[in-house]
């Protein structure tokens, strides 16, 4: 579960103050698939970074899976991201010097899992995203959609509490985007909590709940379906 209370993220430049996230309250129950949508510059990605511990809000409180994460040290935040959260970034963000399997393996090894267990879990994740035949391929040998699926496999390999995705279909064609969305829906069906930022209305409305931001504020919070 995510509990965010009065989250503010502001950027100051001289006398100008820009509220990227403006006093946002949000509760996401465990297992829910929510999408955060809005126009460009509405603050949707900024809110995701605050919730996903990639950035610290200017003010406000965030609780993830019952733990106050605002006052964590840098090392604690890093370990929390490693062990409890999963990320899918907009432009695949997989490491070019590692094979597909090694990209998935990396966070598992960082967790301290024995090699054999880590390898098994990474392979399982690759099977879940349908890339069991691409284990030893390097990113340069994969299509954009395949690279994004590797990124998803990396994000889910350690069975995270929450999966964050920032515009995961932004750089993909329609067919591949549909495939990625189907993958998210499948993960959701398996009980995965997902927070996904997207500016595509069709995809946003496939989630359980849709949050729309404008100028850093929630202007729409609609539950589309219940689990």
């Amino acid at each position: 579960m995510i509990k965010a209370k009065q989250i503010v993220k502001k950027f100051e430049s001289g006398t100008n103050v820009l509220f990227a996230v403006n006093h946002v309250d949000l509760i996401v129950p465990k297992g829910q698939f929510i999408t955060i949508t809005g126009r460009s510059g509405s603050g949707k990605s900024t809110l995701l970074y605050q919730l996903g511990l990639l950035d610290k809000p200017t003010s406000g409180d965030i609780e993830l899976a019952g733990r106050d994460v605002i006052n964590m040290s840098e090392d604690e935040r890093t370990f929390y991201r490693l062990s409890k959260l999963g990320y899918v970034f907009q432009d695949y963000a997989i490491l070019p010097s590692l094979t597909a399997l090694e990209n998935v393996l990396l966070p598992l090894l960082m967790l301290g899992l024995p090699d054999a267990d880590a390898r098994r879990m990474a392979t399982d994740a690759m099977v879940r995203v349908g890339l069991e035949d691409k284990l030893i391929n390097y990113p340069s040998q994969l299509s954009g959609g395949q690279q994004q699926r590797v990124a998803i496999a990396r994000a889910i390999a350690h069975d995270p509490e929450i999966l964050f995705a920032d515009e995961p279909t932004a750089n993909l064609d329609t067919e591949t985007s549909d495939m990625i969305l189907e993958l998210f829906l499948k993960l959701h069906k398996e009980g995965q909590t997902i927070v996904m930022v997207t500016h595509e209305k069709d995809y946003a409305e496939k989630a359980d709940r849709i949050i729309e931001l404008a100028d850093g504020k929630i202007v729409r919070d609609e539950t589309l379906r219940r689990n």
């Binding site: 890093t78 490693l82 959260l85 990320y87 970034f89 963000a93 997989i94 490491l95 990396l106 966070p107």
Partner: peptide
């Protein structure tokens, strides 16, 4: 990205 996914 590595730091983002939790690599120390």
């Amino acid at each position: 990205i590595m730091k983002g996914i939790g690599v120390r």
